[in-house]
Write a protein that binds this DNA or RNA. Sequence first.
DNA 1: GGCTTACCGTAACTTAAGTCACATAGCTAA
DNA 2: TTAGCTATGTGACTTAAGTTACGGTAAGCC
Lengths: 201, 201
Amino acid sequence: MQPLLISDSLLVKLKSIGSMRRMAADAVLMNEDDYIQAIPIVLNGSIKVMRTDDDGKEILLYYIKPGESCVMSFLGATCNERSKIKAIVDEPAEILMLPISKAVELIRSAPEWIEFIFQLYNRRFEELLDVINAIAFQKVDERLWELLRKKSEMNKSKELAVTHQQVADELGTAREVVSRLLKQLEKSKKITLSRNKITIL
Amino acid sequence: MQPLLISDSLLVKLKSIGSMRRMAADAVLMNEDDYIQAIPIVLNGSIKVMRTDDDGKEILLYYIKPGESCVMSFLGATCNERSKIKAIVDEPAEILMLPISKAVELIRSAPEWIEFIFQLYNRRFEELLDVINAIAFQKVDERLWELLRKKSEMNKSKELAVTHQQVADELGTAREVVSRLLKQLEKSKKITLSRNKITIL
DNA sequence: GGCTTACCGTAACTTAAGTCACATAGCTAA
DNA sequence: TTAGCTATGTGACTTAAGTTACGGTAAGCC
């Protein structure tokens, strides 16, 4: 996947328009069914985007990384729709909040802005397709292993500070299932387990 | 869901740019990994968009209906990427094929075109989220029943001319499973079954 | 230290779904 | 009309995943 870093010139422009906001881990940036008030651009840290079920179950869709935005919010906002997803701070983040009216104006004045949004839409689209492939065609043990690797790559660390419950939530399954499968991975020497920590070997 | 019919003025403009193409049912408009040569706008009929697995399994993502387009193709095309999905004609269709260069030009010259694309992206995004919800949180019997109702609504007919195998493919499951669940639906008086036909009561 | 809480391990069981095997039924073309 | 194909019905079995239940253990706190 390409970097898709937002261009410096665009970023400067956006900064002059929006307001900065710092958010701690696990803070909820947006909840399902919220009205969308602003477009968030992530400058540091990362945001976890989840889809939730009516009865509380949820599943990880993708991460928003620095230089990216929550595209769902873009069109949702212009149509005054409610959010279809839940966004939670994963790593403590600095987020640039763009008022919607300004973001819409930008479409006229900044062609790079359109370009940026299109690219982002496309990337998110592909990520959703990946999620669909995963849950439709893969078994949980594969998905688990891929999730661990993705997390490790994201944090640039072999040690993941997560509980089994958190992993289970991201996969949309039960904690016991995850514990069982993690144990298998440990037996096959791919990871080691300790409390609140999974180490990839 | 709103109609999102393409505006007349935009349609006239597009028709002057693209070329018409008629396609019979089951014709393949686009295959996974194809390079994208043109942007299709569906004028009549409908297109079925599927995601396929490496080992042949597939699952229905959504339908493209008249006045809509395959947005995946849009950005994919501008980036010279390969298609991530497979598009098959469902009901015999008339399709307007827009050369990519022209479609890109339009972004400058026709603001309604951008608007159109954004709206479409958004709709497709939501549909993918629905698919994710369905496969992550629903059981196959529910998904089956919803698919039947959707098809019935789409064709404006209580009689569906499909085989169990076709339904199974769209749900990404096995024929036997579908036969079994259809039988249950028949027993609970929601449908009647006959060869190549399912009738919703 | 002792208490509490959150986390983890695991056995036992249930259930949904996938798979296999084969029987039968309906259509169609020679 | 009958052979042959495709579609359907169904029982029996396997497997993955979800559920229940409970015991153990590390961490944090008074």
